[in-house]
């Protein structure tokens, strides 16, 4: 059994160990060094990309913050749009038979279409800029949020709704004060899946349909054989994706503070 300090150390030790192994492997020379740059080289290129001290990152030197915020803005905008529409459509479909009959078949047919397959149309409709990326992020995040909201609304304890009706609640009040908060645990599950898809899709869109952002730098560096920057871009995406999941998780913990998760041993986790 690991005590909590031990577990905290593991969270850091395992990634550090992996990095050290990679550094050693890369320096051992089994592969040409520019094909698999060691972490130290990646960090060096990354640092110049961020701070621009010696232009070793070429034209990307010092542009990291701009690239990261461009990608982040696309994720944020697309994800927010998906959250608002996904939650509203999900509540409508989960609650009303009419909304279910009119919207669900269409949405369920659109759902299996991979968001990336919309890229050609997105470029034709929106051109090469932010919009196609935001559109793709929206598509990727919308469906998990929608499906989880529908599920959450359908599994709301009917007695809670009855109790609300008995206290004089009208339909819109029951939806706002009972169904929505009761469905929040499921909605948050959808939001967390959605934020993951959002990063995948913004990067994909930037490789094809946008001329800046982390995904663009990644693809551009590949074209210029700068695999150190490719790796730095990948690491940036991983870290920012992780950070945005942590942000959604923090929002969830703060909102669902009334939920007491209990482990098998009965400890509160």
């Amino acid at each position: 059994m690991f005590r909590s300090n031990g577990r905290r150390a593991l969270r850091i030790l395992v990634p550090l160990g992996l990095l050290a192994a990679w550094e050693a492997f890369s320096r051992a020379g089994f592969l040409p060094r520019n094909l698999l740059p060691p972490p130290s080289a990646v960090l060096y290129a990354w640092a110049d990309w961020i701070f621009g001290f010696n232009h070793s990152a070429g034209s990307d030197s010092g542009t990291w913050l701009m690239d990261a915020s461009a990608s982040g803005m696309r994720v944020f905008t697309g994800f927010t749009l998906a959250a608002v529409t996904g939650i509203m459509a999900g509540i409508a479909i989960g609650w009303s038979r009419v909304a279910e009959a009119s919207m669900e078949p269409t949405l369920q047919m659109l759902r299996p279409i991979p968001p990336v397959s919309w890229i050609p149309l997105a470029v034709i409709w929106f051109g090469i800029a932010n919009k196609p990326a935001i559109f793709l992020v929206f598509l990727g995040a919308f469906f998990p949020i929608l499906m989880n909201t529908i599920h959450g609304v359908r599994t709301v304890d009917a007695n809670l709704v009855r109790a609300g009706a008995m206290m004089g609640g009208r339909e819109h009040q029951l939806l706002r004060f009972i169904v929505f908060p009761a469905a929040l645990p499921s909605i948050f599950a959808g939001l967390r899946i959605g934020i993951g898809s959002a990063w995948m899709l913004t990067v994909t869109a930037e490789m094809i349909a946008v001329k800046n952002g982390l995904g663009y730098v990644l693809w551009d560096s590949y074209n210029f054989f700068r695999y150190d920057l490719v790796l730095a871009a990948m690491a940036s995406i991983g870290l920012l994706g992780y950070a945005s999941d942590l942000a959604v998780k923090a929002l969830m913990t703060a909102t669902l503070h009334w939920q007491q998760s209990t482990t098998v041993q009965g400890r509160q986790g």
């Binding site: 007695n159 008995m166 004089g168 009972i178």
Partner: peptide, 28 residues
């Protein structure tokens, strides 16, 4: 239809788990 002129106490407590006791009591 259901309405606030009649109060109901259910077999299960059916309290809103996200609200503290006082908010549940004053839900009406």
């Amino acid at each position: 239809s259901p309405g606030a002129d009649r109060g109901m106490v259910f077999q299960q407590p059916t309290l809103m788990p996200w609200l503290p006791v006082w908010e549940n009591v004053a839900f009406h």
